[in-house]
């Protein structure tokens, strides 16, 4: 997408400060509670550092910027994105002749907000429409939580009265099919599987035929975890995608890349390569209930323009939230703003 740095800065001066006002509203704070809990460690360790740093600094100088850089890197925000953020901040400080470190707080929050929103309306809703068979494909490396996420998403749509079917596309990993089956029993959704070792594309094909015949609203397709540098496995995924595309026009309506919040810079490589193979429409950031910072999502948005749809905050059926950048940043910075 086209992104002009100068335009960005001109508009930004209006945006400045508005953002912290947004957070004055009580309702926002309430909604942000879950994020806060999930990101407790992030706030206290990394961003607590930020506050301490800003308070303890007498002036804005190179040392301060270096330390800012470090704090962002500790949050696993991509190195390039961090450099970009810090460069913008330097510019802003110069243009607006800011000298008090405390004044940086709003700027930093706004910076990250703009970085994500990019003057667009970013929706976390999935493209699920009435009157058609909706296909959502879940992809990602091994062990990120694809199957668990499918369970949670299925639950969400089931609650909304949709006829949901899970498709066991991970025919490789031992126990993967049964893992999904157990989730489908918990949720009370339909479940489609063939025997272990089947060609995943054929599983998808048969599942789609079945779904068409039985008027299913949403099918959620699991796939085997694969590292993005495995050529053959990525080709297999390409084929899965192609088969779905061929059977239903415009499908898969969503292809979600599941990323573990503990992932470091490799998350960017994952997003890049999976995006090349199957056009990724959104990210699900899992395991944000740990101490992981999940900052890599900002880099992914910054470099690849892929929005984050959901965040996973635990192992229960309800532990899935729509991603909301305001709440996300609020969760990170609330100490600084208050």
């Amino acid at each position: 997408m086209c992104y002009n740095v100068n335009d960005f800065f001109e508009e930004r001066s209006d945006v400045m400060g508005i953002f912290s006002k947004i957070f004055q509203s009580k309702e926002k704070r309430k909604n942000a509670q879950k994020y806060k809990i999930g990101m407790e460690k992030t706030r206290t360790s990394v961003l607590g550092n930020l506050q301490a740093l800003l308070i303890s600094s007498n002036k804005i100088d190179d040392d301060l910027f270096d330390e800012l850089e470090e704090i962002f890197i500790m949050a696993d925000i991509g190195v390039d994105t961090v450099i970009k953020i810090v460069d913008h901040l330097r510019n802003q400080v110069e243009i607006n002749k800011i000298s008090k470190p405390g004044d940086l707080t709003d700027m930093i929050v706004d910076e990250m907000f703009q970085l994500y929103v990019r003057d667009e309306i970013v929706s976390s809703n999935l493209d699920i429409q009435d009157g058609r068979l909706n296909v959502v494909l879940f992809v990602g490396v091994n062990g990120v939580g694809k199957t668990t996420t499918i369970g949670k998403v299925a639950h969400q749509y089931k609650e909304r009265g949709k006829k949901v079917m899970m498709v066991a596309g991970d025919t490789f990993r031992a126990g993967a099919i049964n893992q999904l089956r157990i989730w489908s029993e918990r949720v009370g959704s339909l479940f489609f599987a063939k025997e272990a070792g089947s060609d995943p594309s054929s599983v998808m094909f048969d599942a789609i035929q079945y779904a068409k015949e039985h008027n299913v609203d949403v099918i959620l397709c699991d796939t085997a975890g694969r590292l993005q540098n495995k050529t053959n496995l990525m080709k297999e995924l390409e084929k899965i995608h192609r088969v779905i595309e061929r059977e239903i026009e415009g499908a898969p309506h969503e292809t979600l890349l599941v990323i573990d919040a503990t992932t470091g810079q490799n998350g960017l490589s994952q997003a890049k390569i999976f995006h090349e193979v199957t056009k990724i429409t959104g990210i699900v950031l899992t395991k944000l209930d740990g101490t992981a910072k999940g900052g890599i999502v900002l880099a992914i948005r910054d470099e690849l323009n892929i929005p984050i749809k959901y965040i996973g905050l635990g192992e229960g059926l309800d532990d899935l939230e729509y991603f909301d950048i305001e709440e996300y940043i609020y969760g990170m910075f609330s100490d600084v703003i208050e």
Partner: peptide, 15 residues
């Protein structure tokens, strides 16, 4: 421990 773990690896291991 996953080799792809980011900065958090240390706090996980330490804990």
């Amino acid at each position: 421990i996953d080799a792809m773990t980011g900065q958090d690896a240390i706090s996980v291991a330490t804990s």
